[in-house]
Design a protein around this nucleic acid. Structure first.
Lengths: 132, 132
DNA sequence: GTATATGCAAACAATTTGCACGCCT
DNA sequence: AGGCGTGCAAATTGTTTGCATATAC
């Protein structure tokens, strides 16, 4: 993928970004593809992948790793994630008070920290209630 | 993969675990395969994958997501990771003081936290020094 | 007009799986 | 002896890519 190219604001890219910003389920490329087809019936999966990569490069979305699949996040402000080991849902965790990270020590050791993510694993409220 | 089966302690499984415990580079399945072949020349890649899954299920190793590939970690005590965006190395981050996570609030909201990982991204000391 | 983006299908790479045989316990 | 584990190769899955055409600017 070329850098420093003049990007066009295509229908496809706009729709994909809208879809991502309208959900908090951290969908896969395939889920986004199905949603996008409801708006642009002949959009291709390849186009979805290409645009997700571009949007990520532009810092408009995040890519999360979930086993072998990627999942995408339309929120790019600082927040964390909770992964349910039972239903595999990913939840956003907003409460900043939960996490306090002081990475001055890392900088002193020569690490240049650009970002960080905290991923909690366990059982989500829904599955917990269902005794799953 | 069957649960509750009586596991055998095979040469292959022992060697794979030894390899993982002897390095801190968080290798891929393929790297482990090449190392294992030096000990068991006719070991197969499928066997490496199968054993990595078993070892993970038994809680003896961790699986880390690195884009589309998995990488494995022979350390299972609490520690964090730093991913270099330049050379793609993953480093262990030990200093507990850097991270302070208080997830009582999550428990109150119904989340049952079993574990968590913190992944820092940025430039590692080596790449930093090399101006990469 | 021109270069970027698209749809399509084929290619790719990482991982998984079916099967017959091998080897722990 | 019995069943879990293995090697091998084929299958599967998620993602990427080449190419001719379409479209944003």
């Amino acid at each position: 993928m070329e850098k420093n190219v003049k990007r066009r604001n295509t229908q496809q890219r706009k729709v994909i970004l809208e879809i991502l910003r309208s959900t908090d389920i951290h969908p896969t490329a395939d889920w986004i593809y199905e949603k996008a087809r409801q708006v642009i019936p002949n959009i291709s999966l390849g186009t979805v992948y290409r645009n997700l990569k571009i949007l990520k490069d532009e810092g408009l979305i995040l890519e999360l790793n979930d086993g072998k699949q990627s999942r995408f996040d339309g929120r790019v402000d600082q927040h964390f994630h909770f992964k349910c080991l039972s239903c595999n849902s990913i939840y956003d965790i907003d409460n900043r008070k939960i996490v306090n990270i002081e990475h001055n020590d890392l900088r002193k050791e020569g690490y240049q920290v650009q970002s960080f993510d905290v991923v909690f694993s366990g059982i989500c409220p829904k599955c917990n209630g269902n005794q799953n």
